[in-house]
Nucleic acid binder design. Structure first.
Lengths: 325, 325
DNA sequence: TTGTACGCGTTATCAT
DNA sequence: ATGATAACGCGTACAA
């Protein structure tokens, strides 16, 4: 691969000048620019980003740690993050933590060693101290780690409220919520809290079930739904913590001969694109994923530029009615 | 951030010695090792990978270019690739090309500039020349670019054969295939070829439809299915080019009152995990995604090590019967 | 067994 | 306006 020196030699100038042309610094005659650009063309020269990063102490890389890219929600989020990062001249280093404590820690070390400019965390199994120690621009999803670490999330409480209210309005009297593990500080647990608040407020019976781990295990969802229908056959309204869970709920209803929405109504959460291939289309609470992804990137960039940013970034959700309510 | 010099100073040795400890080169007394390690601990030192990469002319980064991570197939593949790359000490730089020619080209430039050690391409809109020019270890999916560029794919022909044969065995007499655009050299088109071969061999009527672009447009699938049922109401067996398309076929059947599998039978392709939330579970041709991901990474690593690798890597598929046949 | 000196490719500082 | 020189942090001959 040709270096800046090769270009300099070919153009008959010094490496410094080539660097100036490259970065548009200082005063450069058009003729000189042209000469240098031509030499670059001829050599098919690309500046070595590793050397640039080292010299500038800035890699223009953002690290992304999420449980699994293969999950629709994270896949879509990743897509948006990558899109905006690229637009801003940043690259994305992808890390699947599998929601595993050790992997998460190793990835953090690795990203620090790679001198990424910031980390977007969609996976959180570690203690607060582990996050503070890394001393890097950071943004998290759906988790408030400490007052000084910015987080982005959808309006989980409002979403839970919208979903539950809809079920009640449509005549459901025996409500159920199925969600992930209510780990401390996981903001998505607010969906569950809103659900319970609404149910109580209307004096309705309700049950809440949740997976006992963070592994996003599909089989666990199936089991949970089996348990729900076995123990609470009277349930006629389900608020699922994600569209995936809602899809399993739909399947479970059909398996057991419960008609949807006549006998049981279902509302999901997220608004993943793949819901369009479900039949009937599920009613859901849509998160503004693109905005979330863009904001996460922007919050990193602002920190990189030395600005301090607010901690809470709660984005509005939207009820999208399908045919399961 | 502390540098190797800080560690050297603290441990009372030279930077060279620290580097030796870091890389386990040469003869080092246990005592010395211990001393250095301790200094590293105390300073929370992490070697700067940028500097290492520059010095060694090796970044330990693999670039991955795919159309969309948010599509289940690519999401799962990405997950496996990341997993194996990480295990081998490599990082993954993610690029969503949106199947866009210009983005793809820009990403290739960007990855070259970043001095990635190799590129895994799951997106291909460019001409052969563009690939040759990059002069980097390369592996592609489902596309034979030129005889010297290794590719990995599932046994597309065999998969198409299995799917079609099953439909025929189950009594289908009017077959249809819906797949992506049959662009030159796209190996997945072999699924379609096998379909046609089998249909002809059994003297059965058949139609093949395909999207007219590469955009993986969900709406296009819906339209295509509408067209299929409008123009060919007699169709009783559908071989879909992907599980996503199969899901839309299922939905289209239900919308039109066609019972599955009684009136129409459906077979998909890929074997994405999310098919488990479809109801009924679709019959599909499962690609060994994990093996594909691992092989792609290994083929890059072998090239990095200077070994030449075979061009064709065709992995076996498996018929997995669900309830749509 | 350990240290010195130089190179990796680029940017920044200081001259000219 | 342009060039020489020193850094950025690390690896590696070569020397001792």
């Amino acid at each position: 691969m040709p270096t800046i020196k090769d270009v300099a030699l070919k153009a008959g100038v010094s490496a410094t000048t080539v660097s100036r042309v490259l970065n548009n610094r200082g005063y450069l005659s058009e003729e000189l620019k042209h000469k240098v650009h031509q030499a670059m063309e001829e050599l098919n020269y690309r500046p070595n980003e590793l050397a640039r990063s080292l010299s500038r102490s800035k890699s223009n890389i953002i690290g992304l740690i999420i449980p699994h890219v293969s999950l629709p929600f994270f896949g879509e989020l990743t897509s948006h993050i990558e899109e905006h990062a690229y637009r801003e001249g940043y690259k994305l280093l992808l890390c699947n933590s599998w929601q595993d404590k050790q992997k998460e820690q190793e990835y953090i070390h690795m990203l620090r060693a790679s001198r990424v400019d910031g980390i977007i965390m969609g996976s959180h199994t570690l203690e607060v101290e582990a996050y503070r120690q890394m001393n890097l621009p950071l943004v998290t999803f759906d988790r408030q780690i400490s007052p000084d670490i910015p987080y982005v999330c959808s309006d989980n409480y409002e979403g839970g409220k919208l979903a539950t209210t809809l079920l009640i309005q449509k005549g459901c009297r025996h409500l159920a919520h199925i969600g992930g593990h209510p780990k401390l500080n996981i903001l998505s647990h607010l969906r569950c809290v809103a659900f319970e608040d609404m149910a109580k407020q209307h004096n309705l019976e309700y049950v809440t079930l949740h997976t006992d781990n963070n592994s996003f295990d599909f089989e666990a969802y199936e089991q949970l739904l089996g348990q729900l229908f076995a123990e609470h056959p009277e349930v006629d309204g389900i608020f699922a913590g994600s569209d995936i869970i809602a899809a399993y709920a739909l399947k479970a209803c059909r398996t057991r001969g419960r008609r949807v929405p006549e006998d049981v109504k279902i509302v999901g959460y997220d608004g993943i694109m793949l819901r369009s291939l479900l039949d009937p289309p599920i009613t859901t609470i849509r998160q503004p994923m693109e905005a979330i992804g863009k904001l996460a990137v922007d919050l990193i960039l602002q920190q990189v530029q030395g600005h301090s940013v607010a901690a809470a970034h709660i984005l509005p959700v939207e009820l999208e009615e399908g045919a399961t309510t």
